[in-house]
Nucleic acid binder design. Sequence first.
DNA 1: AAAATTCAAGACAGATCTGTTCATATTCTG
DNA 2: CAGAATATGAACAGATCTGTCTTGAATTTT
Lengths: 225, 225
Amino acid sequence: MDDGVQGFCPNGPLDWSFAAQPATSARDRIMRAASHLFCNHGFSATGVDTIIARAETAKATLYHHFTSKEELIAAVLEAEGETWRRWFFGRLARIEGPARVRLLVVFDVLHDWFADPAFYGCPFINAVAEFDTGNDAVRAAAARHKEHLLTWLKAQAIELDAPDAAEVARSFAVLIDGAIVAAQHSRDPSFALTARRLAEGYLDGMPLGRGARGAAPRGPGKSAV
Amino acid sequence: MDDGVQGFCPNGPLDWSFAAQPATSARDRIMRAASHLFCNHGFSATGVDTIIARAETAKATLYHHFTSKEELIAAVLEAEGETWRRWFFGRLARIEGPARVRLLVVFDVLHDWFADPAFYGCPFINAVAEFDTGNDAVRAAAARHKEHLLTWLKAQAIELDAPDAAEVARSFAVLIDGAIVAAQHSRDPSFALTARRLAEGYLDGMPLGRGARGAAPRGPGKSAV
DNA sequence: AAAATTCAAGACAGATCTGTTCATATTCTG
DNA sequence: CAGAATATGAACAGATCTGTCTTGAATTTT
């Protein structure tokens, strides 16, 4: 039932989880252990005793650093989000092509994420799914994370000269969320490529400001049907 | 903290949850109560005491009908899936247009689902997100549910004369999952329409067997970039 | 009417949960 | 070296968890 530490590669291309960070203080060991257990076995299902056992520390130390399990959950989500975004946007920042290329490479980066054996889905999607009604802190953390994503997507859409950058960002958010969930359920990373093809078709069919791309402009409305 | 019974409309268009079924036996009351609580507050976070309190029954009765909480979870997921599919495919069966229309109406039906104040996301997505690693029964139930969906989508794609019906079904699955998650997080039903526009663009760009639709055929590969 | 099944209410066991306390040990700082 | 902050182990409290059991009442079937 218990599982060892795997997939640890400092500064490597797969460091998308906070749990893979190098250990230093007791606080960090607790954070890494909690991160791993929360993300792999659920938040409610993971007790603090299990966390301190994995972190090889004492309960008093945990409650010295965090006033409650709820606060620990919030800290873990924050750290997971920050680590993931650093990894994700770091990968994308290396792409030098135009905005269209960067927007499509998103799904190649997602593919690498999905292909990691340690992939467990998006911590924020999982947390909102678990707590759902009545945990506004978790919902707010997820909203902040998604806002980061939407801001980046919107910036690319503006660079694309898209007529409605916000709608482009929303569309890509749907594709990203859908790919994450489909890959998580099926353990099949290729859903990232399916989402990429959808994105290509979407961008091809979009009338751009300068009419740069070849496809004939099509209105987004429900024209035919 | 506790919430009453809302959204009950027998045989109405919004009966997508098993929890909205009419009460009869004690077993049904338990199922409805468990359904509501599991879906709104999480599976691990809901104790059997809370369930029997809401069902106005006794613990002995619960354990007379279900050998364990795990079995109750499985039964709830099965019932939720069946009720939802009956509702969903029932709505779609009324559409008499061609397959393209039915495929796009999917997102209008989803919109109605998302717009229900009682909407809590997809129980299977939420369950897999909560248990994630190590609960194969839940994963299998989710896989069966998704298989129903994929089978229907594939049948529509074949009727469309799509070159790769399975890939069309996968694409729509990504769009559906993405819309569900985005709507669940934002509480904004219009993500269904965003997904619908993505689907329209996808279908428009797809080369069909008989070349029925007007758009110039574009290969799905990574042509330009 | 009698018998059998179902149900309600609650006590109970044993485990596990979050969180506290306290004495001690370690480590960092001045 | 002295003092301050931090880490640790272990026991403890109180609540809650799943699951069992008993007793008696209601309901249905024979």
